[in-house]
Measured scan of single mutants.
Amino acid sequence: QTVQFNGLEYHFPNPEEAEKFAKKVAKELGGEVRVKDGRWQID
């Protein structure tokens, strides 16, 4: 599972970890999490 933001990609072994990370980062950055092409993106 991949999380993308600021032009970087973070890879996680399972979707739960990816989701948790994506939501944490979005909260800290005040961004929005969305899934695109099977990847988590933070904008």
Rank of each mutant, 00 (worst) to 15 (best):
G7N: 06
H11F: 12
E19P: 00
N14A: 04
K27N: 09
V33R: 01
N6D: 10
A26N: 03
N6H: 10
A26E: 02
P15V: 11
D37Y: 02
G38D: 05
H11N: 07
V3S: 00
G31C: 15
G30F: 06
P13G: 09
G31A: 13
T2E: 03
K20V: 09
K36N: 08
P13M: 10
F5R: 01
T2L: 09
D43V: 15
E9L: 14
L29Y: 13
F5T: 02
R39W: 07
Q1C: 15
E19K: 07
Y10R: 04
P15Q: 09
V35I: 13
E17K: 05
H11L: 07
V33W: 08
E32L: 12
R39K: 14
A26D: 01
D43C: 15
E9R: 10
K36R: 10
E19M: 09
L8Q: 13
Q4M: 14
H11E: 06
K23P: 00
Y10P: 00
K23D: 05
E17N: 03
K23W: 12
V3P: 00
A26V: 06
Q1K: 11
G7V: 02
G7R: 05
N6I: 04
E32R: 13
F12I: 01
K36Y: 07
N6M: 13
A26I: 07
W40F: 07
P15R: 11
E16R: 08
Q1P: 08
L29S: 10
Q41R: 08
D37A: 05
E19L: 11
F21G: 00
I42S: 02
V35M: 14
F21Y: 07
K27C: 15
E16N: 07
E16S: 09
P15S: 11
H11C: 15
K23M: 12
E17D: 10
E28H: 11
E16I: 09
V3D: 00
E16T: 10
Q1A: 13
K23C: 12
F21A: 01
K24A: 12
N14I: 04
K36I: 14
V3M: 03
A22E: 00
A18D: 00
E9D: 08
P15C: 14
E9A: 08
V25Q: 05
P13D: 13
P13E: 11
W40P: 02
E9T: 14
G30N: 09
I42E: 02
V33E: 03
R34M: 10
K36E: 11
Q4N: 09
R34Y: 14
T2N: 03
A22H: 01
V33I: 11
K24I: 07
W40C: 05
N14E: 04
Q4K: 10
N14R: 05
K27G: 08
T2P: 01
Q41Y: 15
Y10I: 08
E9K: 08
E19Y: 13
H11Q: 08
R39G: 06
V25L: 14
P15T: 09
Q41I: 15
T2D: 03
L29C: 15
R39S: 07
Q41K: 06
F12A: 01
F12K: 00
V33L: 11
G7H: 06
V3W: 02
K20C: 15
Q1L: 12
D43L: 15
K24L: 10
F5G: 01
K23F: 12
E32N: 11
T2M: 08
D43Y: 15
G30Q: 06
K20R: 12
F21Q: 00
V35C: 15
F5H: 06
T2C: 15
K24Q: 11
N14K: 04
R39C: 14
G30P: 03
E9I: 15
W40A: 01
F12Y: 01
R39F: 12
K36M: 09
K27M: 12
W40K: 01
E32Q: 12
P13V: 09
K20W: 11
Q41C: 14
A22Y: 04
V33N: 02
P13Y: 07
K27Q: 11
V3I: 04
T2Y: 11
Q4F: 15
R39P: 03
G38T: 03
E17Q: 08
P13C: 14
V33G: 02
Q1M: 12
T2G: 02
K27P: 02
G31H: 08
I42H: 03
G38S: 05
W40Q: 02
F5E: 01
F12S: 00
N6V: 03
A22K: 03
E32Y: 14
R39Q: 09
R34L: 09
V3Q: 01
G38Y: 02
D37E: 07
E32P: 04
V25H: 04
I42N: 02
V25C: 15
E32M: 11
V35F: 15
